[in-house]
Design a protein around this nucleic acid. Structure first.
Lengths: 406, 406
DNA sequence: GCACTTTAGTACACAACGTAAGGAAGTGGC
DNA sequence: GCCACTTCCTTACGTTGTGTACTAAAGTGC
């Protein structure tokens, strides 16, 4: 057991106040005192320091209320920067953000495909350095680098789940140490769904909800959890493997060895497979006689559904119904107030998933009598994971908890 | 937002150190300094205070190690007491414990049955006062009273789920305020599965696992979560409603409105119903032509199964398999290290459930490559919830977090 | 213009922890 | 038996961060 006790250090108080300023937009010192529970005197001291560090700025005076007008304080997003990288099979996305989570620069390159881990990491390192130069980021203003990937934390470090249409393999993937050696900044590695969750919390400005989940759909499903405003990691940082929740004990076999898993019933591959069995639809989509990427076929179906094609809508509603059942179970289990749908899988026809899930939750959730459970699409778009990875870094810098092995 | 910042107050530090002493059995001041991260000087101060309060005692000297021998410190469990009450339809259980969670006095009375809430609470209050006198508890040594019940926290306070064989009803049940008026001590109300979880953590001495769940089976299923050594409550203290997890999307209708819920497939009522359809078994159990308590019939089946009756074993294995699927989903979702089965439902043939669940988790869980997920029966017996309610009070007293609205 | 309000900052007290130093109790060498 | 050394524990004092009380600054309204 390392250090287990520590008073509210300057560091913690400073970041807590900074976080208050950030999330409030524009505030006065008096507001801060009220909301933080600290006295005006303490706020004065902390604010003085934050101003000196350039992390906040004074931006004028508030409306008169019968006395001296208050000085308005604002977060200064451009004082520091963060980088987020989403590593996935079809593509790698790099994002540079300021401290408000706003994207300053964004670059995509080809995914890691079938590259050996060492090769892939080397390329990522090089591309990251190029990006830093291109975005003209003063190295001293870089808070850290976050990496989102479809992987898990194992005993021997990070392991990546590589999906190759039909094949699934876990591979060791030492991103952290390699990047650490190349650039002298904190590196945080986290799985993509967790990144999406924290990104939503941070950049998506979830309105005052502290317990929510983000469902991330790419090749499969993942769930990221934010509880009490902090990432929930579980006993070994492998939270959120919902792809293999059992939804039909007598259902079809899944590659994981189970039966009736969410993934085998509702993931893009399942939808595409069903489409392939429908001759008319398969012709329409050009599926016959070839083997293309599941993800692009799924995107095609989703686009047709969004355009109103009844058969495609039906296919997605089927997938959405399975997902809704899983979300119902999860909501009952964790008493969630809000669920966000994020990731490339929802980018074309996420509305269908939102509608089906919201209906199901309002009809059957156990907590619906106490509070509603909202279901919404992510506003971050397909780069939610990369943006989330950057947010994770911001989060560790701007919130008082020490929440990452950085 | 109330107070959000505060340094490690004396209160917090004292309880953290006290908790260290309790969980260590016998320690020296030097041990405490090492494990807490505090310096010897600070430990001296805190220990002096704990000794003065009678919460710990000096019990001799350690082995010589080439210098002055260390003074051994021990937790003094009898310095304070806690009361736990489990409120359920068939019976009410009262437990008085010392601070180590050891039961000093235990009393059962008839359950609340069909009593009106006000009547039931009045009786509970009276019985509690009798118990206090009988157990000869000095009021000043009582830390507080914990209440476990199959209910939820609603907008209007606690609500109780009353099961009457076939009928289910939510009733307002103002335990807290009524008890508060009768005795001048902190009252903590929590649902039975959460109580069982924290009781297991506290009195069951879970060996150094901080993330685990307790499944509580009575009339239905509930799940209590302990994460980072603290109770996880979710957004409105209604965590753990696993009874209506969807396990079979095409399964039988459930009273909740859903289909294929865990409860309708695996709860005691489902097992008894299946037994009733087996003519030979129904005769053997004396089920025919009468309508008795589901719980006592289930207990009878479980006893026969424990004795080896093949048909009864089969019935319980079926129920256990459904539960195992639910636990598999939950383990994948939350990355659990340990699952404890507790409550009256497991008291006769819990072994069968343990065996089936452990097999399933080791075969299919996603985290099994990283760490095993152990499944064990509670060592607390059928009064797990009551003991847990008492533990909840101890927990709030002995751990540095303020974790209950007491 | 003067009383009052509200904001912001200063001076000092208090609480909790760390550092440094020393006393207390024991071991082992000569 | 004396002395050097080790380990445990306490006391005295410094540091840090917060609260309280007071004051200065800036504005409003009769």
């Amino acid at each position: 057991m390392a250090k287990m006790l520590r008073g509210a250090t300057a560091q913690e108080t400073h970041s807590a106040i900074l976080d208050l300023i950030r999330s409030s937009g524009t505030v006065t010192r008096v507001d801060l005192a009220e909301r933080s529970g600290l006295t005006g005197a303490s706020i004065s001291r902390v604010v003085k320091r934050l101003l000196a560090d350039g992390l906040i700025i004074e931006t004028g005076y508030g409306d008169p209320t019968g006395g001296k007008r208050a000085t308005l304080l604002q977060f200064n997003p451009r004082a520091r920067h963060a980088v987020g990288i989403s590593v996935d099979t079809p593509s790698t996305t790099y994002v540079v953000t300021d401290m408000s989570g706003r994207v300053i620069e964004q670059v995509s390159s080809r995914g890691i495909g079938k590259d050996a881990p060492a090769t892939a990491v080397r390329r990522i390192t090089a591309e990251l350095e190029d990006l830093m130069v291109k975005a003209e980021i003063e190295p001293s203003t870089l808070v850290g680098v976050g990496v989102a990937l479809a992987g898990r934390q194992g005993r021997g470090g990070t392991r990546l789940l590589r999906t190759d249409s039909e094949k699934y393999a876990w591979e060791p993937f030492a991103v952290r140490d390699t990047l650490k050696a190349a650039i002298d900044h904190p590196i945080v590695v986290e799985n993509d769904s967790t990144c999406a969750a924290i990104g939503e919390f941070w950049a998506g400005k979830i309105p005052s909800v502290n317990d929510f989940a983000t469902v991330y759909m790419a090749a499969g499903f993942g769930l990221g959890l934010v509880t009490n405003g902090d990432v929930y990691r579980g006993s070994s940082s492998n939270v959120g493997e919902i792809g293999h929740m059992v939804l039909d004990v007598n259902g079809p076999m899944c590659w994981c060895g189970g039966q009736g898993c969410l993934e085998s019933l509702a993931a893009p591959a399942a939808v595409v497979a069903r489409a392939g069995k429908d001759e008319a639809l398969a012709d329409k989509l050009g599926l016959r006689g070839r083997r293309l990427s599941v993800r692009s076929d799924f995107a095609k179906i989703a686009r047709l559904a969004a355009a109103g094609d009844p058969r495609c809508v039906e296919l997605l509603e089927e997938s959405a119904t399975y997902l809704a059942k899983a979300l119902l179970s999860i909501t009952n289990l964790l008493d969630l107030e809000q669920i966000i749908l994020a990731g490339p899988g929802f980018s074309e026809a996420g509305d269908i998933y939102v509608r089906v899930a919201a209906t199901e939750l309002n009809r059957l959730s156990f907590v619906r009598a106490m509070h509603p459970t909202r279901v919404e699409l992510s506003k971050l778009g397909p780069s939610a994971a990369a943006l989330g990875a950057a947010s994770l870094v911001l989060h560790s810098q701007l919130t008082p908890h020490q929440n990452s092995r950085a």
